[in-house]
Simulated assay, not measured.
Amino acid sequence: MAGLPALELAAAMTWAFQFLFSMLRIGAFLIASPLFGARFIPLPVRIVAAAALTLPALSLYDPPGPDAFRSLALVPAALTEIAIGAIAGLLLTVVFGAATLAGDRIANTAGLGFASQVDPANGLTMPVVSQMFSLFLLAVFVSQDGHLTAIRLVLESYAVLPPGQPADLARGAAHGLEAVGLMFVAGAQLMMPAVTVLLLVNMVVGVVTRSAPQLNIFSVGFPMTILAGVALLWWGAPTMGVALSALAEAALMRLSDGLQGLADG
Rank of each mutant, 00 (worst) to 15 (best):
P56V: 01
D104S: 12
S130K: 00
N108M: 14
L53S: 00
P120M: 07
L53V: 01
L58H: 02
V48L: 13
V128D: 02
G103S: 07
D119K: 00
A107S: 08
A102K: 03
A98V: 12
L58D: 00
L124V: 09
G103M: 04
A86T: 11
R46T: 08
V48H: 11
L79G: 09
A50T: 11
M132Q: 12
L74A: 09
V128A: 12
T54A: 03
R46D: 06
R70A: 11
A121P: 00
I82D: 03
G103T: 03
A77D: 08
G113W: 04
A98R: 04
L55D: 05
L55C: 07
I82S: 07
P76F: 09
T93S: 14
A107T: 03
A77G: 13
V75M: 14
Q117Y: 14
L53G: 00
S71I: 09
T80M: 11
S59C: 10
S59R: 10
Q117K: 15
S134G: 14
R105T: 12
P127R: 02
L58Q: 08
A86W: 06
L92S: 02
A52M: 15
L55T: 10
A68I: 13
P63W: 14
L55R: 07
N108A: 10
D119S: 03
A51S: 07
M132L: 11
D67N: 10
L101F: 12
D67A: 15
L124Q: 11
G111D: 11
V129W: 02
A110T: 09
A52D: 05
T54D: 01
T100N: 12
I106Y: 01
L60H: 14
S116G: 14
A50K: 05
A99G: 04
I47S: 08
A83T: 11
S130I: 02
V94P: 01
A50C: 11
V75N: 04
D119A: 00
P76V: 12
L58N: 01
T100L: 13
F69V: 04
Y61S: 03
T93N: 07
A99K: 00
